[in-house]
């Protein structure tokens, strides 16, 4: 961790025009995220946690360059994001693998678009299949793979074109608890190996605390940053059951309280 700034959100606001549900034919402004400001350091593992409706997916689209902020700006390496780029890889919750391509074909897809020669594509695909433990499944189609395996392929695909930043949108939400846990530790292992900057969006508090060096707590309606919590855990992978460690429990409780303050306010009415 060099501590250099990698990504900076500067008072980012995104509004959409949506259909008014009460009045027919009337359009309405909807603010998904408002005045978001935070920074991500190079090589950092940052998790964003928040309830549904706090603009998590909007945030990811903005970072991926798939949509532009209404106000404010997002800088990556000091430059404004103007569109999608191979310096950022996205991993989606629903895998988003191309069903007509094999695991290998999917991993090669981004490389193909980038114009990497065939031989090198092949080698890189092999390398990343091995990294996610799927060397034996290279020629399987997505429908022949389990959910966990599909997500491994999706991670390998995003890593294959060597982005600086990995954006992950609730990647493990659709998996069963056991697969999720094993993929979480695998992701940490990959992170240590590849030294990528990872921005990981989740609604799971445990997941956010377990993975993130810092946890950005978001509140809904419209989405804003409530607090950023530092997680003091050091040896996530060495500790067999870090989740019962007192530091983990404390950090988890802190995030939990921050997320639930909102609810209690509501309960008093």
């Amino acid at each position: 961790m060099t501590g250099t700034e990698k990504i900076r959100f500067e008072r980012v606001t995104k509004t959409f025009t949506v259909r008014d549900t009460k009045q027919k034919g009337v359009m309405q402004e909807f603010t998904a995220v408002k005045d978001l400001s935070f920074t991500v350091k190079e090589g950092e593992f940052l998790t964003l946690v928040g309830p549904s409706g706090c603009g998590k997916s909007t945030l990811l689209d903005l970072l991926g360059g798939l949509s532009m902020p209404t106000r404010g700006r997002i800088l990556i390496d000091g430059e404004k994001i103007t569109g999608p780029g191979l310096d950022r890889g996205i991993v989606f919750q629903q895998y988003a693998l191309f069903p007509w391509k094999t695991a290998r074909g999917n991993i090669e897809f981004g490389l193909e678009a980038k114009g990497v020669p065939k031989q090198e594509r092949r080698e890189r695909a092999e390398h990343f299949l091995a990294l996610v433990g799927l060397s034996h499944f290279a020629d399987r189609y997505p429908h022949e793979l389990s959910g966990g395996m599909k997500q491994r392929v999706a991670i390998a695909r995003s890593l294959a074109f060597n982005p600086d930043v990995l954006l992950m949108d609730e990647p493990f939400a659709a998996l069963d608890a056991q697969t999720r846990e094993s993929l979480q530790s695998e992701l940490l292992r990959i992170w240590e190996k590849t030294k990528k900057t990872i921005i990981f969006i989740t609604h799971g508090i445990d997941e956010a605390v377990y993975l993130g060096e810092r946890v950005v707590v978001l509140t809904p309606g419209p989405g804003t940053v409530k607090t950023i919590v530092d997680i003091p855990l050091k040896s996530r992978l060495e500790d067999a059951d870090i989740r019962s460690h007192s530091d983990f429990v404390k950090a988890r409780h802190e995030v939990w309280s921050l997320l639930h303050e909102h609810e209690y306010q509501g309960a008093h009415i």
């Binding site: 991926g64 360059g65 798939l66 569109g83 999608p84 780029g85 191979l86 950022r88 890889g89 996205i90 989606f92 629903q94 988003a96 191309f98 897809f109 981004g110 678009a113 074109f161």
Partner: peptide
């Protein structure tokens, strides 16, 4: 649309 989004994110 997710496949399109995924492909677009790879800047094709």
């Amino acid at each position: 649309p997710l496949l399109i989004k995924s492909a677009r994110s790879m800047n094709i």
